[in-house]
Design a protein around this nucleic acid. Sequence first.
DNA 1: TAATATTGTTTCCCTATGGAAACCATTGGC
DNA 2: GCCAATGGTTTCCATAGGGAAACAATATTA
Lengths: 120, 120
Amino acid sequence: METIGPDELKYLANAQSTGCGIERTLTVLDGKWTTLIVRELLTGPKRFGEIRAALGTPSAKTLTDRLRSLEHQAILTRTVHAEVPPRVVYALTEHGTSLSSVLHAMLIWGEQHPLPPERR
Amino acid sequence: METIGPDELKYLANAQSTGCGIERTLTVLDGKWTTLIVRELLTGPKRFGEIRAALGTPSAKTLTDRLRSLEHQAILTRTVHAEVPPRVVYALTEHGTSLSSVLHAMLIWGEQHPLPPERR
DNA sequence: TAATATTGTTTCCCTATGGAAACCATTGGC
DNA sequence: GCCAATGGTTTCCATAGGGAAACAATATTA
C-alpha cells in the first residue's frame, strides 16, 4: 500500500516552499527538541531512555514524534534489539552526522554571545 | 518604573535553561520567521515592508513580534525616520551580523541535502 | 501467577503561536 | 476638511505543539 501519512504530507508541503538552503535546513531541524536530539547523537548511538534523560525528560510522546520525523527524513536510524526488556538504539546516518557543521556553528556562536551586552 | 514585561520574563526563563551554546543560539533564533528575518538583513538594512514582502507576507503582528524580540536581544536595531509617511529601517547589529556563520552553515547543508535519498 | 523493565502508543487537554481584520497616528497635498 | 501611504497596535480566533497519564507488549525471574 502506497498510502501517504500526515507526516509525509507535511514534509512534502514544507519541501514545496523550500526556497533556499536555509529554509531546507529549518524544515529538518523543526520542533522544540529536534536540534538537541541530533546533538546528543553526535557523540554516538543512544537508547531512547538515554536521550530522554539527557534532554530533561520531555514527554514520551513528544520524543517519539521527533525521533520518527528524523527517521523519516533519514537523519537517523532506529534499531530494535529483540531482547527483554526491549532495547532500541538510535544512531545518526551519514546524512544526520553531516549536520554537525550546523550544530558546531550554533555552539560557537552561543558560547561567544552568552547574553546581550545591555543585560549584563 | 523598572517593570518587567512578558518578553523579558520569557527571555530570562529561557536563559536559565541555557545549558550549552547550542541551546543559547536556539533561544535567539526562536519562532517561525526569526532565522529568515536575519537572512534578509544580512544583505543590508531593510524597511518593514521590504522584509514582509521578502518572507511571503506573514501577518503584520507576527512580524512585529519577531522584530521586537530580536531588537530586545540586540540582534538588530530599529530606526524610525520622522517622515510622512513614516519610514522604519531595521539593521543588524554587530551581534546580529555574527549570526552569519550559523546561517551560512545552514545554507551549505541545505543545498547539499536537497531531499532525503529514499524519496527521490 | 505475578511482578518487573523498557519503549513505546493512545487519549485527552492546555497553551503558545501565528493569522485576519479592524483600527490608529502622522502630515503633505487636493 | 479629507484622503493617501506606511508601519504599526489591538482584538479575536484557529490550529498545532507539546505535556500527563493510562495502557500495551514481552519474556525472564521470583
